[in-house]
Design a protein around this nucleic acid. Structure first.
Lengths: 146, 146
DNA sequence: CAGTCAAAAGACCTGCTTGTCTTTTAATGG
DNA sequence: CCATTAAAAGACAAGCAGGTCTTTTGACTG
């Protein structure tokens, strides 16, 4: 399992916006891109999809920027994956055979299925809030890591 | 975890060549490509790498083709991954952060690390022979599945 | 040793993800 | 109501995986 850059940017951005929400309410794209060390314009498009899907709010112009809303903290990682188009990872065979299922398994089907299920459980039950709370583990400082 | 097409083709081809070795000793690229329903020329390059790395033998010309050798059956899946360039999957962060490790973990580091280790154990300890033996499970018919 | 057969090598194309830059749209503050 | 600010939208380019086709190399066979 390795996620797309889009997904990584999306998740880290949501966490970042949620984290800095205290100071000023809104966070600008420029600030996020710098903090996360991520390409600005590309990130803009990712953010845009998050806004369209209601995961974040945005305001244009003076004092504009991105902010969390009522649903942000409850959003699951799977939901973000949907938005960044990640889910073929689970729909398709590890070996990328077109026809692969329990009655017609690829050589790694059973083993892969077991591990896939672990991921799916993790991703569907973990929310943005969960990740923020769990930060006792200390990853927040590294969201913005180079 | 989702493998490249190259890896899927490589693994299935090795298994296929090992399986049909009884009839005639050598198996032609054309036959493999048809049986596995895989693009012929692209497969040719994958096979080529396997031969260069010693995983399979090949002979050109009349009655040429691919065949297994002394080491084929003992080859681990990790070894095949090396050859098809898969191992960045394990070297790099799930979220594709450049700097991500246990002291500076990304938001999914720990969970991903646990699952990665399962894969690595599986892939480093499973050999081509293991997969062939385990075929009681009945996946061989599906190597060639459409 | 000439013809044939099959792998190897190399040129080229396509689509997708990622990344960059410019222009447009919409807020807000003076 | 105009200037400024920041997101949205759109055009464009690079890089890579995957795929196709043609030419070259080398082995066997009659």
């Amino acid at each position: 399992m390795i996620f797309s850059k889009s997904f990584g940017y999306a998740l880290r951005s949501v966490l970042y916006v949620a984290l800095v929400r205290d100071d000023k309410e809104k966070t600008q794209l420029d600030k996020i891109a710098v903090a996360l060390n991520v390409p600005r314009y590309f990130l803009g498009k990712v953010m845009n999809r998050l806004v369209k899907e209601g995961i974040l709010d945005s305001v244009k112009g003076h004092n504009g920027g991105f902010s969390i809303n009522e649903i942000t903290l409850g959003v699951s990682l799977s939901r973000i994956m949907d938005i960044t188009g990640e889910n073929e990872q689970f729909d398709s065979c590890v070996l990328r055979q077109q026809k692969c299922n329990s009655t017609n398994p690829c050589p790694l089907h059973r083993q892969a299925e077991a591990i896939k299920q672990k991921w799916q459980l993790l991703l569907s039950t973990t929310t943005v809030e969960d990740l923020l709370k769990k930060d006792q583990a200390g990853f927040i400082k590294s969201i913005a890591a180079i």
